[in-house]
């Protein structure tokens, strides 16, 4: 059986709606992935706990609140603590280019801005999977 790519899509933070995250989650499912969708108000602890239990390959976070510089590093740190450094942490939101660069340096994968096509994100994830998993 071919291995399915398992992705956790979560929306950390306290701000309002999760439309964007939902759209991404369905797009990734349409691209053939198994997407665990957990909705709003996810803390980094909750995200990592879910990622471990669901044994996902990828975590995608939608961060609109401006808290990206605290959330992404925190999730990375918790993943490290769990020995789960082989999980790809990616995501998107309103993130300035220099912040993206800094997060990439820390070990976060590619980050996608507001206008990104869902197809582009799906392709990025499956390319990563091909390279890092078989």
């Amino acid at each position: 059986m071919d291995k399915k790519i398992r992705v956790l899509v979560a929306k950390p933070g306290l701000d309002g709606h999760d439309r964007g995250a939902k759209v991404i989650a369905s797009a990734l499912a349409d691209a053939g992935m198994e997407v665990i969708y957990t909705g709003l108000h996810q803390t980094p602890e909750k995200i990592v706990r879910t990622a471990v239990e669901e044994d996902v390959d990828v975590i995608g976070l939608s961060v609109l609140s401006g808290a990206h510089m605290s959330i992404f590093p925190k999730v990375l740190e918790l993943l490290k603590k769990e020995g789960k450094t082989d999980i790809l942490l990616t995501g998107g939101g309103i993130i300035p280019a220099e912040d993206m660069e800094e997060l990439n340096k820390l070990g976060v994968g590619k980050l996608f801005g507001p206008g990104s096509k869902t197809q582009e994100i799906a392709e990025y994830i499956s390319n990563w999977h091909n390279k890092n998993r078989e």
Binding site: A29, D30, G32, E34, I36, Y37, G39, R49, E53, E54
Partner: peptide, 27 residues
Amino acid sequence: TGGALLGDRLRMNKMYDHENVFVRSLA
């Protein structure tokens, strides 16, 4: 597509951090 949107966890978040509980979604 062979893909799946696994959404049950969305509603099962009361006990996510409880030591005694382990939740797994399957397609």
